[in-house]
Amino acid sequence: MGIHVSTKINGDDVEFVCDAEETLLDVLRDRLNLTGAKEGCATGDCGACSVTIDGRLTCSCLTLGAEVEGREIGTVEGVAKGNELHPIQQKILDNAALQCGVCTPGIVVAAKALLEKKPDPSEEEIRYWMAGNLCRCTGYDKIIRAIQDAAAEMRG
């Protein structure tokens, strides 16, 4: 039997029906066509499926779809305001901080969550916060610089 869930995604009311064993990642990707979050491992080790639930950074592969009743979910699709990129998105582009780009949605969501919590993180704080987001292409150097640049811009 399907489970009926009412939730909010990127500010919009959303309803869906899912099976008990479906993860939030499955629901986002397969039922709601929000394919920005990626399945890299399905075990919470790679961070490619990062979303926020009530503002808290989490792996959507470790959350069941049925658990998000009444919660507010933020995904990469909601980070830009229309055509206006968020500073972290722009700085990732400016710094060439992506190669294949498959980890990038998770990086964007995780870095945004960091900067909302801590506007002036040290390099070490950025590195430890981002340690749950695997990137195999870049060696992280340019990603860390992009987050530092975005933090500086957001502080004004």
């Binding site: 929000l34 920005g36 699709e77 998105q89 992506l98 780009g101």
Partner: peptide, 9 residues
């Protein structure tokens, strides 16, 4: 392809 990759598209 950058904007598509930072926005999840």
């Amino acid at each position: 392809d950058g904007v598509d990759k930072v926005t999840g598209r």
